[in-house]
Nucleic acid binder design. Sequence first.
DNA 1: GCCCTTTTCGAGCGCTTGCTCTAGAAAGTC
DNA 2: GACTTTCTAGAGCAAGCGCTCGAAAAGGGC
Lengths: 200, 200
Amino acid sequence: MADHPVRSLGRPREFELDEVLDSALDLFWKRGFRATTTRDLEAELGITQSSMYNAFGSKRDLLLAAIDRYEAQVEKELLVTLTQPGADLEGVDRFFSRLGRWVERHEHRGCLVVNLMASETGDDVIRGRVVAYRKKIRSALHGALMRSFDAQTAELRTEALLAAVLGLHITARTGQPGEVDRMLRGIRAEIAGWQEALPA
Amino acid sequence: MADHPVRSLGRPREFELDEVLDSALDLFWKRGFRATTTRDLEAELGITQSSMYNAFGSKRDLLLAAIDRYEAQVEKELLVTLTQPGADLEGVDRFFSRLGRWVERHEHRGCLVVNLMASETGDDVIRGRVVAYRKKIRSALHGALMRSFDAQTAELRTEALLAAVLGLHITARTGQPGEVDRMLRGIRAEIAGWQEALPA
DNA sequence: GCCCTTTTCGAGCGCTTGCTCTAGAAAGTC
DNA sequence: GACTTTCTAGAGCAAGCGCTCGAAAAGGGC
């Protein structure tokens, strides 16, 4: 993932940056940023707080690095259905299909970034990141919808679907069994309605 | 709002319970539950921590009371468009219209309960409250949609709109200027599409 | 082998947190 | 006006927080 320098001066680090970053991401994602203490991280990451601070600088910097990793994962596993060349309304439906499996696999986690939208509004840098994240999903959706609808329709439906994606994620975090499934069915039924009205 | 006992033995309380509760709600809503300290509350509420603890028990109990108050407000100002007798798809559109003004008035606050969905997943009681809150909105939407569509369509569209409502709220919390407006237009355009297909 | 750099380790610092305690003040009751 | 009951004020407690520090350990360069 990240590019590692070939050489290093001094004592070599005893852990893999990427592995530790994944553990931190998991914890921030599952428990929330504020609720995760540096001691929690120490236990889960298997390294001391000093090592963590030496490698990442601060708890907040660790979060920012985790966001990077999270976004890369989302792009590769979800947004790709929207951004690959030629993706249209059918791609949008595939996106929601994958989103369903993603949410199921990451039960009660929701979305790292969406969770931050609710809780870390005081930090300008983080707020910038979450705004950019929404923008990224919006533009991916729009790119695909543009291939199936006229400009105005595409834009309107982009907004409606973006709201649906965020709402689905928030629901996934505290959802009861079946809640997310029903929601997903409702969204995809709407998309199916659009498809039927399309010229074959 | 709350019913006050007529009499009280001993020294009477020097503040209004409801006023203080409103201030607490405002703070929890704006800054988030975790980010709001008891000192913050002390300053904003104008009473000492002792008085606060004497009156409400704990910070968490204060939140639960604030949720009650918040829900009552939502019901009276928003859900009423869906629950009043005879409300149908037109009522749903009015609901979103009011939601837009509500979000604008409470800038960067989002929804108290939606925010809790993201950050307070560890507390079973609070999780119960947020699940119930979703259920309440869902059933209000469903009640209105049932009057305009067949059972299956109503259920599917209820789910899609619930997702949209939650997504809109999350966006409102960190939204850039215009972001919420565009999203709302996208959602209402979808509803308008449903209306056009309806038998006049 | 010895330096130089960097990481690891464990202890712990200063601060904030939610909450409590004690003393005294303010009402109703008789 | 004593007595009871409740509320207010302010200090302060124990625990937990993010983060740092000094010393030891582990490698590469010469």
